[in-house]
Amino acid sequence: MSQPVLSVSGLAKDYGNGQGCFDIDFELYEGEVLCIVGESGSGKSTLLSTLAGRLSADAGSVRFRDRAGSSHELTTLAEAERRRLARSEWGFVTQHARDGLRMNVSAGANVSERLMALGQRHYGQLRETAAQWLEKVEISRERLDDRPTAFSGGMQQRLQIARNLVTQPRLVFMDEPTGGLDVSVQARFLDLLRRLVHDTGIAVIMVTHDLGVTRLLAQRTLVMQQGRVVEAGLTDQILDDPQHPYSQLLVSSILQA
């Protein structure tokens, strides 16, 4: 617990027109959920993609500590190594389940894909592991051979979680995972997520514009505006006593309802 899973300092991604994200510093520890909130276009998703190596950073450093305890500098990491980490140590949950799932193969194959990528070649074991994970995300194991197209939006999103967590990653990136879900489904989804994070001790970085999600899940929160972090700290502190004018606006405009 003493060493952070991820430490970010001075990170910048500049699109060249003033857009992007700049001067990002934070640390993330095991079992911690960090939410990044802010309005549309404030650089949340850019930051997430830059951290996950999907975009190349223009300045700063991102250090990731893997399961074995060795440290990797993600901004200069070779692609082969980055892809290896992405398969074994990270997960990425997208806003639209369609982007994160293979829609034309069964739920079981979706969950097993990462295991097979890591070299598991026993069909019976793969299937059993997949069934267990479906149950963990509250999908009946009878649905193992159904395609995700036959699933509801909430189930697809839970399937995406199972597909990402099956290899027990240390760090999961989530880009507005509750974006397309209605409120009751959202609540169950968040409940499930909180339990999984608690049980597995993974670290999560989640982009959201829903402060309700932040309050439920996150220990710490970054508030972003125009590509910069304007306020960072414990979630309760930020939501109950926002200091920066923009955070105050955000909190007052959303929590009133």
Partner: peptide, 22 residues
């Protein structure tokens, strides 16, 4: 081409898995 370059062939087993499942 990237999958070939990095020798990431887990995907092919997804197809075989799908065959057995169906």
């Amino acid at each position: 081409r990237k999958l070939h370059a990095h020798q990431e062939y887990g995907l092919m087993h997804v197809k075989l898995y799908e065959d057995i499942a169906r």
